[in-house]
Nucleic acid binder design. Structure first.
Ligand SMILES: [Mn+2]
Ligand SMILES: [Mn+2]
Ligand SMILES: [Mn+2]
Ligand SMILES: [Mn+2]
Lengths: 223, 223
DNA sequence: GGTCATTTTTAGACAAGTCTAAATATTTTT
DNA sequence: AAAAATATTTAGACTTGTCTAAAAATGACC
């Protein structure tokens, strides 16, 4: 129905909306899509012609409900495939994004329904991001970042905000993954780094840059 | 590395080679690709330029070893994905071809290796076609068609030659699927139809048109 | 309110893949 | 061996998505 390129534009616009921006400017979109502003203008016009977004020249664009539904569906497919790659095919969380970028464009409603069922209707992908449901609803994340915590908090790692392979490999190297238990020992005021105990045995220090990209929740809760 | 279109051309040429044709003519390829001869000429020239096939103007083309390896890899991916869809996601054998046509172009060696392992290194796809192995070898089919059998033969259905959804649904309607047991009761000379016993309980008659598209082997053998 | 910097759009070009129509080569028929 | 039929290639055009360079609109500053 829609080309890979169209779906990628729509998904990127959706993510910018979800990031809190109402109207998406041409330059911001060009930056996000890693392309030129002139290319974006051309594509935006085409998408507007297909009623996928509202476009005001020199102002920017906003997804219509139609555009939003296409974008959410693509995001849902992306995150379900990432879950499949990690849970079923033993990939690590830093390897799956590129492959999911391809798989998210496979067209078959039944395929995604069956995949969802096979995976047990997961709520979150391997990076802790919510998987949009079949009805298009995207749950608000129940997690918070590690830099919003206090000493003595007992926490579980539930996701990350930075999705780059470098960051994910860095965490894996220290044994930090989804489900890891963290106890806050001390927050160092001078550099906002945190001393903590990982899985009740290993003590380590994480810089503020790392800490603000880790999503956690309290131990007693069940996601 | 190669575009979807290039991979589709290469895979189609490979199948024509496997069907026994040494040199593929422009018109035959156009027919197989459901496109025009002029488009084929353009594409063949491009593929020849990339050393994927040898092309002699007005004569036809033959895959090089490089072209063959790309084509075999695409065919392997197609058949592994079809197996995944049927074995893991509960699709029926008449629903998977279209989806596999998309999935076969996903680029990731590791993905296919992991999928193969997850599926238990299957030798045949849901239609009984051999799955090319990682080294590029395609096993000769150990099966023969139902019209090459004699009365009293005890057989197991192992595949089909006609892959159209219509034919596959027709077989499913009568309960004929991979693994079904067949006993030949009688071969009717006047129309070459066959009376047989399905799974030791149901008697039925299959036309020659159906019979020559069903692949079987003797009951005692294990594929 | 006018100038300047920035943002956005337009104009024109290109690559991939396709098509129709016309030209040319090959094969078959006489 | 020439004519007719068939197969193949070429020429020119179109679509999608991209780019660079130039033009136009917008917003900031004085
Ligand atoms: Mn991702
Ligand atoms: Mn993710
Ligand atoms: Mn198939
Ligand atoms: Mn098949």
């Amino acid at each position: 129905m829609y080309s890979f390129t169209e779906e990628n534009y729509l998904k990127t616009i959706l993510k910018l909306h979800l990031g809190g921006t109402q109207v998406i400017s041409t330059n911001v979109l060009a930056e996000s899509m890693q392309t030129k502003a002139s290319s974006v203008t051309d594509m935006i016009k085409k998408l507007a012609g297909k009623k996928l977004l509202k476009y005001e020249p020199y102002r920017g664009c906003i997804l219509t409900n139609l555009g939003k539904s296409v974008a959410v569906s693509t995001l849902r497919k992306h995150r379900l495939w990432e879950t499949f790659l990690v849970n079923t095919l033993s990939f690590s969380w830093d390897e799956v994004h590129e492959i999911a970028e391809q798989l998210e464009h496979i067209q078959s409603d039944k395929l995604i329904r069956q995949l969802d069922a096979f995976l047990g209707f997961p709520k979150h992908d391997p990076h802790g991001d919510p998987i949009p449901q079949l009805d298009g609803k995207i749950a608000a994340s129940p997690f918070f970042t590690l830099d919003q915590t206090k000493p003595q908090n007992q926490l579980v790692v539930c996701g990350v905000l930075n999705h780059t392979p470098d960051f994910l490999k860095y965490l894996s190297k220290y044994g930090i993954e989804i489900g890891s238990k963290l106890s806050i020992l001390q927050i160092n005021a001078f550099d906002r780094s945190i001393d903590l105990l990982l899985n009740e045995k290993q003590q380590l220090n994480l810089s503020n840059e790392v800490v603000k990209n880790i999503l956690v929740q309290f131990t007693h809760q069940v996601a």
